[in-house]
Each structure stands twice: as C-alpha cells, then as structure tokens.
Design a protein around this nucleic acid. Sequence first.
RNA 1: CGGGAUGUGGCGCAGCCUGGUAGCGCGCAUGGUUCGGGACCAUGAGGCCGUGGGUUCAAAUCCCACCAUCCCGACCA
Length: 572
Amino acid sequence: MRYSRFFLPTLREVPADAEVISHRLMLRAGMIRRVAAGIYEVLPMGLRVIRKVENIIREEMDRAGALELFMPSILPAELWQETGRWDFYGKELLRVRDRHSRDFCYGPTHEEVFTDLVRREIRSYRQLPLNLYQIQTKFRDEIRPRFGLMRGREFTMKDAYSFDRDLAGAERSYQAMHEAYTAIFARCGLRFRAVEADTGKIGGSLSHEFMVLADTGEDRVVSCAACDYAANLEMAAVAPSEARQGSGPPPDSGLDPEDVQTPGKKTVQEVCQFLGITPQELVKTIVLKGEKGPVAVLVRGDHEVNSVKVRRLVDDETLELADAETVAAVTGAPVGFAGPVGLKVPLYADNALAEMAGFVTGGNADDVHTRGVDLADFRVEAFADLREAVEGDPCPKCGGILTFLRGIEVGHIFYLGTKYSEAMGARFLDESGAERIIEMGCYGIGVGRTAAAAIEQNHDGKGIVWPLPLAPFQVVLLSLDPGKTEVHAVAERLYEELTAGGLEVLFDDREERPGVKFNDADLVGIPLRVTVGGRGVKEGVAEFKERATGEESRVPLDRVPDAVREFVRRQS
RNA sequence: CGGGAUGUGGCGCAGCCUGGUAGCGCGCAUGGUUCGGGACCAUGAGGCCGUGGGUUCAAAUCCCACCAUCCCGACCA
C-alpha cells in the first residue's frame, strides 16, 4: 500500500476527550474516529487490525469445530419476552419500533436468537453437539461509554453458542472453547490469563474470563505465585484460617459491650484514630438491599465486602449497597454507625469474625460506637467467605501467596446449562426416544477491545508497538527521497519485490521530510521499518529498525526481501 | 442516574471575570528556499463562538433553559 494513496490521517495532537492510552493512540494513528458517544468509525488502518483479530478468531473457532453463521442485529421483542430478558435487561437494551410499531431491539447478545434457531432445526441427538458462532456488531446502551473501542456502545463481538445433549458434552464443549481461546490470545501475541469469573447477568454456573494483562486494566485479577490458580477479584476465594477450622467455643473477651461517644467519626480510619485501636479490632457493618429485603454483612475493619459473594450466599442477584435512607431505617442511625447488636435484619459474618473478640462496632445511634463486643452479643445467620481477597492472602488452592494483577477482559466463556433452552423449549430426542433439554454454553470475545487491549499492553512514548500478528502491516518501507529518482527508484523496486513476495507493506512514498515519516512510522507501530535513503543507497544497503526493540541493522539491498521474510517468520 | 467539568475554523487552545471589528499554534492550499527524527519565508482559504430564549444601543463575553461531550462512582466482550 502506498501511503500517498492510503487514507491514514495521523494526528500530531491528541483530541482532548481521549483519556486512556489505547483510545488516544487509535485516534492519533488514524485507526478510528468518534461519531457519537461510544460509537466509532473504523478507518482503514483500524480495520486492518480488526480483521487480523477476526481471522485469528475464525481460524481457531473453526479448528475447534465451531461453525460460523450470521445473525440479524435487529431482533424481535417476542424472543426476548420468552426468556423474560425484555424486561430484565433494562435500559442497556436499545429498543426500536418499526413502522407498524412492533417492538424490536438491537442485539446486545444473542442467546435467544441462536436458541430459537436451534429449537426449530434440531430434532435429534444425532445433530448434536453443535457450536455456532458469528462475528457481528452488537449494541449495548451503556450508562457510561468510554475509552474508545475499549468500552463502546456499538462494538464488534465474536459470540459462540454450544448445544450439547448432556452435561458431560457441555463440559467438553466448554473445555474446547477454553483451549480455543487460549490459542487465540496466544496467537495474537498477548500476555493474558484465564481466570475464574462470576457469571453475572448471562447466568449459568461455570465461567472463565480471559484477561489481557495491562497496568491500565479496569479489572483486578488475583493470581497465585505458586500454582495455576487465577481468578477475578470478585470471585477470588479466601480460605478460612486454620484457627477457624478448629472447632471449639467462639472466643470471648469476657467484656460487656459498652457504648462510647464518637462524634462525627464515621470511617474506619476516623474511629480507629479516635479510639486508639487498629482496624483489625473493629468490625464494619455493611447494609445491603435487594429484592429479598435488606441484610447486613460484617467484615473486619481492614477488609472489604465482596458483594458478589454475598449475593451468592443470600441468593439475591439484585443485592446492592443500601442507600442512606435504608441504612437509617435498618440501624436507626446515619451511615457510619451501623453495628450488629440489636439489628433486626439477617446478619452474615465473614469468616475472619470467628476469631475476633472484644471488638468495636457501630452503636446504631448517631455518634455512638460500641466496644467490647463479642460474637455472643448478637446472632449471626452464617459465617462465610464474604470479603475481598487482599494481596498476600493464602491461595485457596495450594496455600501459596496471592498476588494482584490488572487486566482487561477480552473474552468470557460460560456454561449456561438449560437456562435458555428450557425457557424457549429447545429439546431433542435421545437414543431411547426420550425428549431432553439441550445443554448450552456461550462464549464471547470483544474484537475491538482485543485490539485496544493489545495497545494498552504494547506501546511506548512514541506510539503503538504492534505484536506482529495484529499489525496492520508487517513492514513500513520509507523512501526518504521520493523526489530524487535514483534513490526513490531503489525504494520503488523494493516495494515491488516485497509486495510480490506476499508481504504486507506500507510504502511511505510521500513528499515529506524524513522526521515526519519516522514519527508516523513509530506512531502507527508497524513492527519493522525499512529505510531507503541517499546515505544507505550509496553503500548499497537499506536500514532496518525493529519497532519493539529499537534494534537497527543494515541490510544489503538484494537481501532485503529475504531479511524481511526472516523477520516475519521469527515474529510469528 | 448521581457528582465534577467543558463546548470558539479539521486538531490543540486563548479571548469571557471587566460586553464594543474573533485571535494564536498545528494542520490545509499556492509559491519559493530546504531535505536522515515532526523545516523556514511569503501569500491564502477556512468560524451559525453547541442550540434556543432573555438582558442590552450592542452578547463568544451577562442571565435562563436545553443539547452534546468528557472525567469520577454501581459486576460489561
């Protein structure tokens, strides 16, 4: 591709509304432009990268036995009403009406349509297992779109759905996707981890997220230094300590609870400072509220409640931090003074509480805390693992030490069970002629997000540093003297040779100063730069520079095509 | 939906407080000189000052409303 004929509008200055690195660089490198909040145009340079990601996904999905098809993006309301998600999915679902004022939505995910297709076409166990996928545009009317392609409202996603005759088959399908995903992200040249994950709104019981590791990632990932355990922080189990595992009477301080005035001291830090205690001697009481009513959760002062764990324990997906009015109604005090003694709502305590005695809690009255509290002073429904893991906690699998990483969720796989097949009547006949419900799984990859994550993970002060498999071009060939015929002729010839050899080359034949070309080449991040200029040509060489390492070398002109091919082979 | 902020040529910004001819840098066009890490000189094109209302002789500037965008918070590929 000749740069002079290409559409690659690079930006010297950063548009003010781009915050994260990948967003800024995608704009500056002429990959995308914004049309509306969370909605982007993908320019040729961007598309080339997107296609690279898509093709890797396709190859690995096909290899795993999945079949590509293409579903509509506009979906009739009836399908969504069948599973109840027309109401449940909420405002994120972009709803539209046609001229007959029939309800439709722009698909944010496609379980219903795939299940509908399968229930109409699949009759027999002989037709299973089946894994169908598509790469398609989705729309989720996010509350707050941001970060460019990282979290847009419109985005392209690969979504796959597996259909199996039984649990064992579904697990095999799940495993096959786990392996395919691992292959996909490895082939993209990314550093990533597969982590245990919450199933969230999609539902189901088994789930892994694929996280591209980057300091700028929004998700926190817990990883064991000693074994292969890795989990999303919201899932990371905290093993009860040994003391807890031994039975015996709960510890007792022998003290009686005693109220103390703590005027205006609401936070753990303030209370500790005021009373001269450490957070480990204090118990936080957190009020949560869901469709089943409010509950209170007790955690040690230096720990944080993990609401995903509480939701699972209480079996209430809608549970959220209660608002100030609810807290006041439940505790009789403003936020900051809740305590377990005398509370009328169900109390759940984190395992760490089981070893505590004589601790400080809120006093359920304005400006009052209570000290000398023991477990015997109130009634707990259950002790459980309810807190967030912290760095240094023991690994729940091997006892090793947990470390924290930051990641960007680029893929998510779920075992769905029969949630959708049952609601929509997707059944088949087994060998014995008995009617059975299809077991399902679903598997997503954010295509644009994968490209963005690759940038978050691979960039420097000058721009993008593409891993070769995702790079829009493999080589950028700079002609430093496009006007001077002898030198430029050499560049032209090299361009022909490289292109003829099947390489993807961007040929910078523009009438620009060298500095402009160098900087643009660095910005757009093409892995190998080949410079043809007066100096080198005089000596019969072209200059190679690797974007990632900065390593430079001089290559005789007649060896250039081979050397480039060698580079490409080495990198892929 | 809360909290914070911003809307001025394509991009980045100043001007607004203290109303009175719309400016700077980059980019773009033309000509010339340059030419190995974002050149220089000259000339030029390009702006409903987010939208609507109001105050005023006069509004980018003051007031009100709306819209849009961005940032911080509640489980998303």
